[in-house]
């Protein structure tokens, strides 16, 4: 989510609440008998407000489970999640008087700090990374579809190579099968099987594909293959083209394009892991914090 001018209202409201909380905290901390603590009335007010904000931030997860409910737009929930979630940290610190002396309160304070920091990290990543993905991965696909797409890319490349290396007498049969085939989705089949390749060139092309290109397509995340690097890949295919007749260059260009798409999917996957990996810290600790906060509230009311 972009943090832009549309956040101004939330930002101003959050700053105002923080300022009011700070102004009220100073005399409370200086003059309240025994000092600031969670059990005092001002401390309780800070605690209730802080926990309410944490709950609201946590409810965004529930809101996602029910996207069709008419309970406010997702963007509004996200802005509230960002700003109220961040605001909960100072309010809870005011509640505790900037101390965490008990085991449970210490654990909760550490969790809160980690949750807010991971959330801020996530907000920064969500602000910058999507634009980078747009520019660096023009062939972006749905993240969850990457394994499926990769399978299809591999099949597509194999088909192109098979078509190039088919025996002349099989060319007509191969052409007809390509017209109806469901595997080659990128029109690779429109490339007519080449009859220009000699038996030696066909063997060489098969060898290059089997030992050079296919391993990369099977494990595109590996950096061992020269095809994992766009510059090296370009040189690789230029060399391959020099060994093959011009009639095969377009088909070789398609295989090169498949490899480029694989590299972009690898890049997309890496960026996606960064873009969403912080949630592996943020979400589990947030849920834990909310549960512990509830227990803390119940025990505090009890005693």
């Amino acid at each position: 989510m972009l943090i832009d001018a549309t956040h101004r209202g939330w930002a101003l409201a959050s700053i105002a609440i923080l300022a009011a909380g700070t102004v009220a905290y100073v005399p409370y901390a200086l003059f309240y008998p025994g000092g600031p603590a969670g059990h005092t009335w001002p401390g309780l007010i800070y605690g209730i407000l802080g926990y309410a904000m944490m709950l609201f931030a946590g409810l965004m997860g529930a809101r996602k489970k029910a996207p069709l409910w008419r309970i406010g737009r997702a963007k509004v929930w996200m802005r509230g999640h960002l700003w109220l979630g961040a605001l909960s940290l100072p309010l809870i610190l005011f509640h505790a008087g900037f101390a965490a002396r008990g085991p449970l309160t210490f654990v909760m304070t550490v969790l809160l700090v980690v949750v807010v920091l991971s959330g801020v990290t996530g907000a920064i990543l969500q602000h910058y990374l999507p634009a980078r993905i747009m520019s660096e991965v023009p062939l972006e696909t749905i993240y969850e579809q990457i394994p499926t797409v990769r399978e299809q890319l591999r099949a597509e490349a194999s088909t192109i190579v098979e078509n190039l290396c088919v025996e002349p007498e099989m060319a007509a049969l191969a052409a007809s099968s390509l017209e109806t085939g469901r595997v080659a989705v990128m029109d690779a089949g429109e490339e007519a099987p080449s009859a220009d390749l000699t038996a030696e060139q066909r063997a060489n092309l098969r060898n290059v594909y089997t030992n050079g290109i296919l391993p990369f397509l099977r494990d595109p995340d590996s950096t061992a293959s020269p095809l994992a690097n766009s510059t090296k890949a370009r040189l690789y295919f230029e060399a391959l083209r020099r060994q093959c007749p011009p009639s095969t260059h377009e088909a070789l260009g398609d295989i090169e394009s498949v490899c480029e798409e694989e590299r972009q999917l690898t890049r997309q996957r890496r960026m996606y892991l960064i873009l969403h990996g912080w949630l592996l810290v943020h979400v589990p600790l947030s849920v834990t914090l909310l549960v512990l906060g509830g227990i803390h509230a119940l025990i505090s009311i009890r005693y």
Binding site: E144, Q145, T148, V149, D187
Partner: peptide, 25 residues
């Protein structure tokens, strides 16, 4: 020449993926 059309891109999608649980979630 590979040409990316919406229709062909759509054909690549496994439509059952929504019900599956992927690594990060």
């Amino acid at each position: 020449m590979r040409i990316r059309t919406t229709k062909k891109l759509g054909q690549r999608v496994d439509r059952t993926y929504i019900g599956k649980l992927f690594p990060i979630p």
